[in-house]
Design a binder for these strands. Sequence first.
DNA 1: ACAGACGCTGAACACTCGTATAGTATATTG
DNA 2: CAATATACTATACGAGTGTTCAGCGTCTGT
Lengths: 225, 225
Amino acid sequence: MRSISEHSGHGESVDDRSTKARIRDAGIACIAEHGITETTARKVAAIAGVSPALVIHHFGSMDGLRTACDDYVAATIRDFKEKTLSSGPSLDVLAALRDAPSEPLVGYLAQILSDDSPAVARLVDDLVDDAERYIQQGVESGLLRPTKDPRGRAVVLSLWNLGSLVLHQHVERLLGFDLTDPDALTSPTASAYIGPLYEIYGEGVFEEPFATQIQQLFTESEGTS
Amino acid sequence: MRSISEHSGHGESVDDRSTKARIRDAGIACIAEHGITETTARKVAAIAGVSPALVIHHFGSMDGLRTACDDYVAATIRDFKEKTLSSGPSLDVLAALRDAPSEPLVGYLAQILSDDSPAVARLVDDLVDDAERYIQQGVESGLLRPTKDPRGRAVVLSLWNLGSLVLHQHVERLLGFDLTDPDALTSPTASAYIGPLYEIYGEGVFEEPFATQIQQLFTESEGTS
DNA sequence: ACAGACGCTGAACACTCGTATAGTATATTG
DNA sequence: CAATATACTATACGAGTGTTCAGCGTCTGT
């Protein structure tokens, strides 16, 4: 029972819907919940309510499904970031992403971030690029301090954010705060994580004489090489 | 061919050596290099130069081997940290760990940190505890700033460190710096990561009026609840 | 109305996995 | 020296995997 048009099988950009999309969403959900290695063709098929063979029929292989999921998630994140870009800069790359789409994008990210695929690498690169742009905006508007290494700071901040996401189980166990929860930021337990985070963002951790001491140690070694 | 004594099969603490230890080390090496799901009994056996059945004979099951690896790595890290604890506090929990033991402990950690086992959870808890202790030392000696939430700051800083480790592929791709490299800290590319890190540790990222503004926003909401 | 394409399924294949079992060699114990 | 325990291997089994194939219904274009 095919629902609408979509006669050609390539389904690249827009008319992606119906069963094939349901299988892809099932793959995303399964990966987000159980991880990549636990996501089998039969499980995805069961979630989507189809036969295992249909998964292969639509995506060629399980690797094809994986790629399709990566691409779709990456595209969704990019689209969503473009929409919310106008609402102002943010240091948390995924803050706005948590509540908006119905799919468990954050959980998916948390699962695949540590296992590299080309699509994930490109997505991370994009997130870092956007962070660098956001941060530059913040510097120009006077909210953020300037830095010697804008790119490096964007990379480090982004990867700290994403790393916390990957280790969300430990965050939850230690602070009682689930980063993959859709309404994580409005949770009363959010301050257990965001409090220390903003404190470090605000004043650092080094006391003043020590900070400039280390800072000069790095400007020396960086000036020579 | 058993080498020394070790008649009893429980091999708990010290007399752990010879073939059984070689198999465990092969497991650690395989997990560190290829990840947990790619680590099969046959691969471990091939690395250790034994038959797959011997892996089961010594560890009961692959899950038993996994637990033995977790426990051994955790114990090794704890032992090593006790030794280097006297050399002074450090914010990087794993800095000293990289060069010392011959085994790829950091790579192993990077692989298992995102997949929770009881041993890993305990190890992370210990690392956070130690970090909290280190940080308190730093505060008392005037190197580090005091905080409203010592525990939270220790958790956040530790998990940022460990998260970067899990995402070491992205760090390497974006900054050309391999965190799992045994001599990573002496590498000339190290400053690409450590530079921004120390800058943030030194002065934060928020500009002054903005920092206190957010800080007060959190002291208000924290004072009420 | 007919022909072909498409969505979809059930069953099977080849393969890899963990693990059990039987058996061999070596070392320790009496 | 005999007996027993231990280290170790070869082989096989059952479960689960991705994927293929033949076929069934329905829908589309002519």
